[in-house]
């Protein structure tokens, strides 16, 4: 077998294994409470009947591993269970919200990725000049700030003082694409700022690293133009680290939406999960948790596989 195929297959198998363990961990995460989960969910003042009802709902009389297998097989069949709080099937609760969250993250990614890579290349090209240092200070500040700080500053300036955009990102079914885009301006800006800062710093580091390679010196000593050195000699080698940076940051984005959705009261999965945690609605927490975690695992897996594919030493094995 070609070593490339073998490596990718190994990586995919490892990814599948990781997903399985992650699902078990998330299930176990809600089981670690010493004593009775039902009692803990309802609090000390709960009536015995209510406790009994929840115990039955969660199937607490059966061993944990059987409940896990049930839960997992249900999940794989698309049955995400029922909410404890309002008795609605979780699948219905999540459907629209998942779409909203993906929309928010997608728009942010579409904006942030090109900007961050461009800035990273510019900073690397003009490294150790005032421009590079200025970009460095700004991005360092941006990654130092909590998302909600950036979010509220943007709301204060652009929504409350300038009235340019709405402060609350309300979207609803049937909204036109343009209206939706307008509604999510601020959350997208908030997410983008943080992600751009991370991605740009990592892109810069990757390019500086490649530009310091001896083969770049070889290219310079051949008298090649700067454009050719960058495009032909640096880029193919910087590609794999940059792809990695992008995908890792997309994974970050998926989780970063949680706080941003709460700031902007955006009807997405993050908001739903936080509410469910506050209400101790365990089945909803499990379902949303596994969706977030799986997305994260899959994106990181993609990064690994792309990195393997972009490596010439593996592609053209001896």
């Amino acid at each position: 077998m070609h070593p490339l195929v073998k490596l990718v297959a190994q990586r995919l198998a490892l990814g599948a294994g990781t997903l399985l363990v992650v699902s078990a961990l998330i299930f176990a995460g809600t089981e670690i409470l010493p004593g009775d989960v039902a009692q803990a969910i309802l609090g000390q003042s709960a009536t015995p009947e209510a406790v009994a009802a929840i115990r039955e709902d969660l199937g607490l009389d059966r061993p944990a591993w059987i409940r896990y297998l049930d839960w997992l097989s249900g999940f794989l069949r698309g049955d995400l269970g029922t909410s404890l709080a309002n008795r609605v099937p979780i699948g219905e609760m999540i459907a629209g919200r998942l779409e909203n969250t993906l929309f928010l993250a997608g728009v942010a990614a579409a904006f942030a990725v090109p900007v961050a890579i461009t800035l990273g290349i510019v900073a690397a090209r003009y490294r150790e000049t005032w421009l590079d240092k200025a970009i460095s200070i700004v991005t360092l500040s941006a990654i130092s700030m909590p998302e909600f700080f950036i979010g509220y500053i943007l709301i204060f300036v652009f929504a409350v003082k300038l009235f340019w955009v709405p402060s609350i990102a309300s979207v609803f079914p049937g909204m036109s694409f343009a209206d939706r885009l307008y509604a999510v301006t601020l959350p997208v800006a908030t997410l983008s700022l943080v992600v751009i800062a991370h991605m740009m710093r990592m892109t810069r580091a990757a390019i500086v690293n490649v530009m310091a390679s001896p083969y770049i010196e070889t290219a310079e000593l051949k008298g090649l133009t700067r454009a050719r050195i960058t495009l032909r000699h640096a880029l193919p080698n910087a590609l794999s680290p940059i792809i990695n940076v992008v995908v890792i940051n997309l994974a970050y984005l998926v989780v970063g939406v949680v706080v941003v959705e709460v700031v902007f009261v955006y009807p997405g999965m993050g908001q739903l999960m936080v509410d469910a945690v506050a209400k101790r609605d365990v089945p909803v927490v499990q379902a949303t948790g596994i969706i977030f975690a799986a997305t994260y695992v899959l994106l990181n897996l993609t990064a690994d596989v792309l990195a393997i594919l972009a490596n010439p030493r593996i592609r053209h094995a001896r």
């Binding site: 390679s213 001896p214 083969y215 010196e217 070889t218 290219a219 032909r232 000699h233 080698n237 010439p312």
Partner: peptide, 12 residues
């Protein structure tokens, strides 16, 4: 260069 292994671009 001293180290041709490093001085050749691995991608081409």
């Amino acid at each position: 260069a001293q180290s041709a292994a490093a001085a050749f671009n691995p991608a081409h």
